[in-house]
Amino acid sequence: MEAKLLFDDKHQWYVFARDPDKPEKIIDTNQYMVVSGKESIVLDPGGIEIFSSMLSTILKFIPLEQITHLFASHQDPDIISSLGMWDQVIPKAKLYTPSLWEGFIRHFGCENIEFCGIEDGGGELRIGDTVLQFIPAHYLHSSANFHVYDPVAKILFSGDIGAALEPQDSSLFIENFDSHCDKMKFFHQRWMPSNEAKMHWLKRVRKLDIDMMLPQHGRIFRGKEIDQFFDWFEALNVGIALDS
């Protein structure tokens, strides 16, 4: 699995992606980790199929006891079906995820890890010396859904927003925004159910100071590509299955 340091100051952001050992037919996912002091949080740690690759890759950078928190933006299997494994490996860790999904996510196995539900309005979490914000992104696509914003690193982890379905060996970063739009279009039109929710989210995130936007699938947005994405997304009609 490819690992890259995205931000390195007093705390660090890593991306883990493009796992060559992943079974072919499961969707490719990007996992992220924030390390600050003696703590760290893994954002959308992934499905059970990539658990062993994730564990091996993380332990290249930090020891096991430093994995103190997990975050799941929503309940999907590619986000958190590995929970039952993490539950055995890091039993003292805490899982932050939407409160609404508690009864569902516990089906993946959560006997040891402490379940910390995030209420609909969002909230904050301190990891070491870093404070992360949980930004509501409800109905995009999941009915209870959060993104993570780091005001110091100016990074927004945007879950399924900004996702693209691409070949395994594609670059981690966008090289040409216009051609990238084709790879994002169907994903957003079909998976995102609500134009109202979309506008609500855009109003919220446009107020944030963002240098990098990290989706859970596809490529990372940097600099002006972020505003380009917001404009593109605003103009896109979503929820298209209703018209079929």
Partner: peptide, 18 residues
Amino acid sequence: PVKSAITASQVAGELYRA
């Protein structure tokens, strides 16, 4: 299996640094 998965990952981590 839990200990085995952790051990294998720890070994990979050490060798990555090496």
